[in-house]
Amino acid sequence: MSTRISDAIVKDHRELEQYYKEVVNSTDLDHQERYGNQFTWELARHSVAEELIVYPAFEKHLGEKGHKMAEEDRTAHHQVKELLKEFQNMKPKDPNYVPKLKSLWAVLYEHIQDEEKNDLPAFEAALEKTTGTSESLAKNFGRTKAFVPSRSHPSAGENPPFESVMGLLTAPIDHIGDIFRKFPDKTISPNPSTK
């Protein structure tokens, strides 16, 4: 059975929650750094992929309601990206490292709850009218995550086509930087060329 777009998004949400907990429930600085980097890597890619694939699909399949949902989600994403940019430049030895992640998570968690409770069910209901659309969106969402920036760049355009252009420019730089960052030993490589 193919994965629906809402399933792919919820899977990312659970992974982000896991990485968040790994950081805040540990006192080991190396562990916190590895999972903080993994959290940043996943959240940056997830956010851009939603903006490029999911939000335009909200607008296409849900009309005015979808446009309103997409705009609200873009606003929430911008706030999350601003906080992520601050967090991604910190090290665990900084006394504000965990508090910054907690404040980021509070905003992100509220967005996740709204998305899972309201946006995704309405979206899937609209997608049921066309066979295979949800599954196709899930595939495109996954593919897109391999080629977008892996760090937060809130000053870059957050709406297509600006997001696409900025992603093409910043993604290679982010991916090179990822080579030199520490990540958890048992996670998928952040280098998209190794997937």
Results as ranks from 00 to 15, higher is better:
H46A: 09
T131Y: 05
A70D: 04
R45T: 11
G36Q: 02
E128K: 03
I5G: 08
R45N: 14
E64C: 00
S152E: 03
V54M: 01
F141H: 04
I53H: 02
Y35M: 07
P149T: 04
Y109P: 05
V165A: 12
L104I: 07
L83A: 07
V10P: 13
H46M: 09
P190Q: 01
A125C: 00
E116D: 12
L127R: 05
D119Q: 07
Y97C: 04
V148L: 14
A76N: 09
A138H: 00
A122E: 14
N140I: 05
D114L: 05
K81I: 05
Y35D: 11
L120D: 06
N118H: 03
W105I: 06
H31E: 09
K60N: 10
A70N: 00
L29S: 11
E51K: 02
P190C: 02
L62I: 00
A156L: 12
G177R: 05
E124M: 00
A76F: 06
G63H: 04
P190H: 02
F180Q: 02
V98L: 03
K93W: 08
M166T: 12
K65P: 05
E59Y: 01
K129C: 02
L108T: 09
V48I: 15
K102R: 07
P56N: 07
P172S: 09
T131D: 13
R45L: 10
T194I: 10
T133Y: 00
K129L: 00
A57I: 07
A70C: 10
S136L: 10
V98E: 01
E82P: 07
K195N: 14
G167H: 00
A76D: 14
S103Y: 05
D30S: 11
V23G: 02
F123Q: 01
S103A: 04
R45Q: 15
I173L: 07
L84W: 09
E42T: 15
V165T: 08
V24G: 01
V148E: 14
M69W: 00
E128I: 00
S2G: 06
F183A: 06
A106H: 07
K21S: 15
P172H: 06
K65H: 08
S155Y: 04
R181Q: 15
T131V: 12
K93M: 12
P161W: 01
V107H: 08
Y55S: 04
K117D: 15
L108G: 06
E158Y: 00
A126E: 06
D30R: 09
R181T: 15
K68Q: 08
E51G: 08
K145Y: 08
A76V: 05
D7C: 06
I188F: 07
E71C: 00
R151S: 15
S150W: 02
Y20I: 10
F183P: 13
H111D: 15
R14S: 15
V107D: 11
A171L: 06
G177F: 13
E124G: 01
G132N: 03
P121M: 01
D174L: 11
E110P: 14
S26L: 01
W41T: 11
T3G: 08
A106K: 12
E71H: 05
E22H: 12
L62R: 00
P184N: 13
V148H: 02
E72Q: 04
H111V: 06
E124N: 01
K117N: 15
